[in-house]
């Protein structure tokens, strides 16, 4: 699994409401009015999108969530999550 070069950041116009007691985060995309619920893993990927590149996100995700897990499985998860977050307009890609 490879990631596009460049980095990722959260899209503008979002309203982000963590619900830590339920291990979820609710995000409202005001530009395209819709609500999304992120589970804990997706929430972590979303918050790691602060200008980091895909490789860095995967490394930091693994450090926080899955030191004992298969690296390729984690990379695949991150790739899928990034694609989904991009598709739903929660994050954006900044080309290198």
């Amino acid at each position: 699994m490879s990631y596009p070069t460049g980095c990722f950041r959260q899209a503008g116009g979002l309203r982000v409401r963590p619900v830590p007691e339920l291990e979820t985060c609710i995000v409202f995309t005001s530009r395209r009015p819709k609500l999304y619920m992120l589970n804990l893993a997706a929430w972590l990927v979303f918050e790691l999108c602060d200008g980091r590149g895909g490789e860095q996100i995967a490394a930091d995700y693994a450090a926080a969530a899955g030191a004992d897990r298969d690296a390729s499985a984690i990379r695949a998860e991150i790739g899928t999550a990034i694609e989904r977050l991009l598709g739903d307009g929660l994050i954006e890609h900044i080309a290198a």
Binding site: Y36, M37, L40, A41, A64, A81
Partner: peptide, 21 residues
């Protein structure tokens, strides 16, 4: 916050999931 929650949980976390409400 999310890192602390992730590190505090037992077992393998589920795959990332983004669901429209």
């Amino acid at each position: 916050t999310v890192k602390a929650l992730m590190q505090g949980r037992a077992g393998v976390p589920g795959a990332p999931s983004v669901e429209p409400i």
